[in-house]
Every structure is written in C-alpha cells, then in structure tokens.
C-alpha cells in the first residue's frame, strides 16, 4: 500500500504523496496513514484500563447504606497505605518519644538531637493546643500571656513552665494546679473608691508611668496594707503565688489607669487547663522546651 501512494512523481508539489485535498497558502496536507503499532498501543491501553478496573478499586455504586465501590482483586487501598505510613512514622518517632519521656528536661536540653525533635514536636503541639488562646506565634492577647517575652507570672525556668503546662492554672480538676486568688477590692467593698483611685496612681508610679504624685503618696499606704503581702514591698511580685511584677513595662490586662482600676476593683482570675492528662508527659515536656526556647526562657 505504501508503494501505491508513494509514487515517484517528483514534479507534483506533494512529492507524489496522497493528500487530503486541503491546501492552505499552497501547502498541501498529506494523508499519511497512522502507523499500525499506534493502533496496537491504543488497544493495549484499553486492555490495561479494563484490567486496572478489575484489579484496582474503581467503580462506585450506591447501596442502601450510601456509596460503595468495587474493591478490586489486588485489595489495594490508599487509606491502608496512609495508615501504614502513619504507623511507620509513629514507630520511628516512638524511639525519640520514649527517650523524651524517660529523660528529664535538663538532659533533653543538653542533647542536640532530642532537643531538635522536642522543639519540632512542641511547635506542632503548640499549634494544635495552645495557639487558640496564646496566638499562633505565642504572642498572646489581653489576658493571655505573651510567651516570647521575659515576664513570667509563675516562673520562666524549664521546670516552672513544665509545671504550668502539666497542671494548669486555677484548674480545679487538677490537685497540683497553680492557685492563687486576688481579692475583689471594689466589688467586695474592701477598699473605698477613693483608696482604689489612690492605689492605682501608686501602681502607675511603680513602673514610672504617668501618675498623680499626690494620690500616689496616699496610695503607697494602701499598697503597703493591702497589696504588698503578695506583690511585694516594692511591687516586684511573687512568682510562688502568681502575683505579677508591677514594676515592669508589661501588663497582662493592660497598664493604663482604667485597666488597673478595673483589675483592683473586680480582680482577675485567669484560667489555663492542665494538659498532662490530655497530651501525655512527653508532649508536655516538648511543649515546655518549645515555650522555653521562644526567647524568654530562664
């Protein structure tokens, strides 16, 4: 057949090849037959497709319980593959998780490999569990501490942070939770409004903020009587009972006159859940190391 269409008539524009008769700008379209093997390739693909549908999961069909699908002879399932991969990665992680669980925090901190694994695990756990309140960058919000800074209400050492995460703050279900309560000086009428106003001016003076000096002098007496037991003589705070340092530049609930007045009047009662039961000891350790490494750890 090739001989039939391939004449040796070189004079013709198409070199003697059979054409479709289509001509554009003097260019003729040849009518070259498709190679036979190309056709076989198509058939082979069709056979492959049919075979694939039989061997692999393929055709969906409705059942009384919803949709199902043909499972295929090979019994392949992407979900099984994923489950296998997850199990494999858990097994490989378990080696580190076990070491982290059995090591104490100082040991982990001094082991480069364990520390790297802990920080990565801690970052993931933080994103899943802590970020809703503390923010994805641990930057905190009003009432929820910024964990990047160097101001720690209950302590910023590794062990302190671990304790806080493990048992929470004012989390009544946990017997070892950190607990303290500030009196509601206004609501419970412990102090007169004028005394509150004076002591607020004194507190403002502690951190060298703008304040009324005359009121502050009177407020110092109130502070001495009512506040210094927890916040210290000079307002330096006491971490053992979670009393914030009032001298520094950082304020969990705001450092202006209105915010401090509100704090003194109705007090604050920040609550954080205990995580040990929920996340397990290894993850709590990882979280402690992660938070400690955010920049403010002591």
């Amino acid at each position: 057949m090739t001989d039939e269409i391939k004449s040796k008539d070189a004079a013709s524009g198409s070199g003697g090849m059979e054409t479709t008769g289509h001509v554009w700008d003097g260019i003729e379209e040849l009518n070259t037959p498709l190679p036979r093997w190309w056709l076989w390739t198509l058939y082979a693909c069709i056979i492959w497709a049919v075979g694939y549908m039989i061997v692999m999961p393929a055709v969906p069909f409705p059942t009384s319980d919803g949709w199902d699908y043909t499972k295929g002879l090979a019994g392949y399932s992407q979900r099984d593959v994923v489950r296998g991969e997850v199990a494999k990665s858990e097994a490989s992680r378990a080696i580190f998780e076990n070491r982290i669980a059995s090591a104490d925090l100082a040991e982990i901190r001094n082991d480069e490999d364990l520390l790297a694994v802990s920080l990565a695990g801690g970052a993931a756990a933080f994103g899943d569990n802590c970020a809703p309140c503390h923010g994805s960058g641990a930057q905190g919000f009003t009432g929820f501490p910024n964990l990047n800074d160097d101001d720690w209400i209950w302590g910023g050492s590794l062990d302190d942070i671990y304790q806080t995460i493990a048992h929470g703050i004012r989390w009544e279900e946990d017997d070892d939770t950190r607990y303290s309560e500030m009196p509601k000086f206004g609501v419970d009428e412990i102090l007169e409004p004028a005394d509150i106003s004076d002591v607020v001016q004194f507190v403002l003076s502690l951190s060298a903020s703008e304040h009324n000096a005359e009121q502050a002098v009177r407020g110092a007496v109130v502070f001495e009587d009512q506040c210094s037991a927890c916040h210290g003589e000079s307002g330096q705070g006491d971490r053992t009972m979670g009393a914030p340092n009032l001298n520094d530049a950082l304020w969990l609930y705001g450092g202006d006159e209105a915010a401090i007045t509100q704090t003194v009047t109705q007090a604050r009662y920040g609550v954080m859940p205990a995580w040990q039961g929920r996340l397990g000891d290894a993850t709590v350790k990882e979280l402690a190391l992660y938070v400690h490494a955010l920049g403010g750890g002591e």
Binding site: G135, S136, G137, A138, Q139, N146, N148, D149, D150, D151, N245, D248, A249, L250, G295, G296
Partner: peptide
C-alpha cells in the same frame, strides 16, 4: 509572628 516582642524592662 510576632514581628517584635516587648520585654519587661521596656
């Protein structure tokens, strides 16, 4: 995230 952090000494 965060872009900067304020420390206790300001």
């Amino acid at each position: 995230n965060p872009v900067f952090v304020r420390l206790s000494d300001g």
